[in-house]
Nucleic acid binder design. Structure first.
Lengths: 201, 201
DNA sequence: GACTATAATATACTAATGTATAGTTATTGT
DNA sequence: ACAATAACTATACATTAGTATATTATAGTC
């Protein structure tokens, strides 16, 4: 789709990316010219050539108004900032400021759309599903889930991961560890479904 | 350390951050003034006040030359770009371009220092350690590891996760699954130790 | 051979942008 | 009561920076 850049264009495109990364804003055409010891117009023509090939877009008239269209993730990584929630006070929404402990950045490309939050796993009740104490679980917020899905449910002011099993009239929450029993109830408050697990060693 | 911002300053600081996030470059003083329906000098004075309080730095004379000093991570997330390596051709280094399939962004604050790379797990040989088929394993590159550590070792052009056990003269690689046997050798080429696991559902 | 793209220079023009002067009004702490 | 800070206006000026004209030279393509 996008035409290949010439060596010079490649070098200039790289310089633009590095400038943004270093200073936080794109260079002017004169700054580009200076870097490569060429005149303003030389740099300007290169910039326009790179734009024509679809690698970036310049807003006409504005200074330093270079928007990257290719390799954006080199400069602005494509991540999602997910709130990590701790103990959840009854009554208030899960994502209320009071519940948010910190934020974690994870690759947005690998996560589902929708409202996400993260829990720090306590205990070994889901060890059979490869979810360990201390793991960070990313949850996609939703009030219901499919049979057999791993869900976050609110039990005693704690968001807990369990396997959801629905039968005729009852809802069951299973653990992935024989040591733990099954919780059965008429209705259960589901916070969301498991979207990802992150663990550090 | 840093003085608190006034409400107006807070709003302007937020606008600057959002502008960078949206367009990729900071606003001019006139763009700030426009947003808040104040004159150029009004916006300029606010900018200088915010700078004086240490939240940002303006390079004199340059356009849009606003460098964030506080809350940088809101705009430029603090992530590490980790190469995901696939099949490893014998003889060439693990991190050679030929081996790199893609990159994954993970939070640098939760990862160790040093050279990192990632593997996509194939098979269920480490299921007992909560490492499943399809998981992404982040490896810290090192040629040796402690006894009992989970390591990535090179077996038949594949980087494989195993538990390292060292005895008097031999090195053993254990699986975390009874179905698999133990590999024993005089020496083994260790690529690194397990630093993190990332899994999506 | 005509044509297009690349890579330049020198010079110039204009629009965009940072910075300054001079003043107003209100608020707050000493 | 006074000084300092905040939050503005209107106007002006100088510099920065994008854009244009005209020109040269080389290399590959139809």
């Amino acid at each position: 789709m996008v035409k290949p850049l010439t060596k010079k264009q490649e070098a200039i495109f790289l310089f633009i990316k590095q400038s943004i990364k270093k200073t936080g804003f794109p260079p002017t055409v004169r700054e580009i010219g200076n870097q490569f010891s060429i005149t303003v117009k030389g740099a300007y023509d290169h910039l326009k050539a790179i734009e024509k090939k679809g690698y970036l877009h310049c807003e006409a008239g504005k200074s330093r108004a270079i928007e990257l269209l290719v390799n954006k993730e080199d400069v602005y990584p494509d991540v999602c900032s997910i709130p990590v929630v701790g103990t959840i006070a009854a009554g208030i929404p899960v994502l209320a400021q009071e519940n948010i402990e910190s934020y974690i950045q994870l690759p947005s490309g690998l996560l589902p759309q929708g409202t996400l939050f993260a829990l720090r796993i306590k205990g070994d009740s889901m060890i059979g599903a490869g979810i360990f104490n201390g793991d960070i679980a990313v949850i996609k917020q939703q009030s219901d889930a499919n049979n057999g899905a791993i869900v976050a449910a609110l039990l005693d002011d704690e968001a807990t991961l369990k396997i959801l099993k629905k039968t005729e009239r009852k809802v069951h929450l299973l653990s992935a560890n024989e040591k733990y029993g099954v919780i059965t109830a008429d209705t259960i408050s589901i916070l969301g479904t498991l979207a990802a697990i992150f663990r550090t060693y």
